[in-house]
C-alpha cells in the first residue's frame, strides 16, 4: 500500500476510464501531492464538474462533490466562503472548464479565491463521444469536425493569466513526477491556482487522429512539451510547435475569502 492510496476509494476501483487514458495518471499525481503536503483528509474537499475528468472525485476518499456541467467553480467558491479553513481542489476537464464553465473560470480567477483548479486537458469531449472542445487544436479531427476543426483553441494558461490567477502551471501525464510538485505548489498558493495537465485520450482523440497507442501519445507529449526556460530560448516560429511546462506565472493579490471576512467584520461594527 502506497501512502497516497489511502486517498482512494479502493472499493470503487478499477475506474471506468478507457485503457490507456491519462486521467488515472493525473489523479494519482493529485493524491501524491496531497500526501506530500500531508493535508488533513477531513479538511480537504474535491469538487468536480461533468466529464471523464470529473469522474475522479468519485474515486477519491475526501469530502467530494460531483456537480453540474461547468459549475464546479461556483460550488467550490461557496464551499471556500462558507469555511475558508478547507483546502478546496477542483478537478475539471477542457470542455467543462473552458466551454460550459468558461465564464465561471474567468471570474473565479478574477476574484483570486483560494482554490486549486486542475484542468485535465485531453483536447476532446471524451465521455460524449469525441466532439471538438475549445482546446482541440486546429486541423485535429473530432466527431463534430470530420474534416478537422478550424476553430482556434484557447490557451487556458494565458486565459487564466489574463483573468488574474496568481499561480499558473502546466504539466503532463508523461512528466508525472514533476506534476506532483506543480500541484503541491498550487495547493500551497493562497489564491487562485491553475494547473493545466495534458493527458492522452487514445480512444476518442488519438484513434481519430491516428496518433497511435497511449504510449505513443505520451512520447509525443515528451517532445512537444518542454521546460519554460528551454521554450523561452526558441524563436517565434519554433514556439508554434511547442508548449512550455513548469510554473508559468505567479502573482500576488489579496485573497477573496480573506477580503470577504474583513467586510463581514466591518459590517458587524468592528472598527479594528
Amino acid at each position: 500500500m502506497r501512502d497516497y492510496e489511502t486517498f482512494f476509494r479502493t472499493n470503487r476501483l478499477p475506474h471506468i476510464w478507457c485503457p490507456g487514458c491519462g486521467h488515472g495518471i493525473a489523479m494519482k499525481a493529485i493524491a501524491k501531492a496531497i500526501a506530500k503536503l500531508d493535508l488533513d483528509q477531513d479538511k480537504t474537499v474535491i469538487v468536480s464538474g461533468i466529464g471523464c475528468s470529473s469522474r475522479a472525485s468519485g474515486y477519491m476518499d475526501f469530502d467530494t462533490l460531483h456537480t453540474a456541467h461547468g459549475r464546479a467553480l461556483p460550488f467550490a467558491t461557496g464551499i471556500k466562503l462558507a469555511n475558508p479553513e478547507l483546502n478546496v481542489i477542483v478537478i475539471t476537464g477542457d470542455g467543462d472548464c473552458m466551454a460550459i464553465g468558461g465564464n465561471h473560470f474567468i471570474h473565479a480567477a478574477r476574484r483570486n479565491i483560494d482554490l486549486t483548479v486542475i484542468l485535465f486537458n485531453n483536447n476532446i469531449y471524451g465521455m460524449t463521444g469525441g466532439q471538438a472542445s475549445p482546446l482541440t487544436p486546429v486541423e485535429k479531427k473530432a466527431t463534430t469536425a470530420p474534416y478537422g476543426t478550424f476553430d482556434r483553441p484557447f490557451n487556458p494558461c494565458e486565459v487564466a493569466k489574463t483573468a488574474g490567477a496568481t499561480y499558473i502551471a502546466r504539466g503532463t501525464a508523461f512528466h508525472a513526477a514533476p506534476l506532483v510538485d506543480l500541484i503541491a505548489q498550487g495547493i500551497q498558493n493562497k489564491g487562485f491556482s491553475f494547473i493545466e495537465t495534458l493527458v492522452q485520450c487514445p480512444t476518442s482523440y488519438g484513434r481519430r487522429n491516428k496518433m497511435g497507442s497511449a504510449a505513443a501519445m505520451l512520447k509525443d507529449m515528451s517532445e512537444t512539451v518542454i521546460p519554460l526556460a528551454a521554450y523561452n530560448r526558441l524563436s517565434t516560429e519554433e514556439r508554434n510547435e511547442k508548449l512550455p511546462s513548469g510554473v508559468l506565472h505567479t502573482d500576488v493579490f489579496p485573497e477573496y475569502a480573506a477580503e470577504y471576512a474583513k467586510i463581514i467584520k466591518q459590517a458587524g461594527g468592528d472598527k479594528a
Binding site: 476501483l13 478499477p14 478507457c18 485503457p19 490507456g20 487514458c21 487514445p202 497507442s213 497511449a214 504510449a215 505513443a216 505520451l218 512520447k219
Partner: peptide, 10 residues
C-alpha cells in the same frame, strides 16, 4: 485492475 493499455510495456 490492468486494462492492457501497454504503457508499462512500452
Amino acid at each position: 485492475f490492468c486494462k492492457g493499455c501497454n504503457i508499462c510495456v512500452a
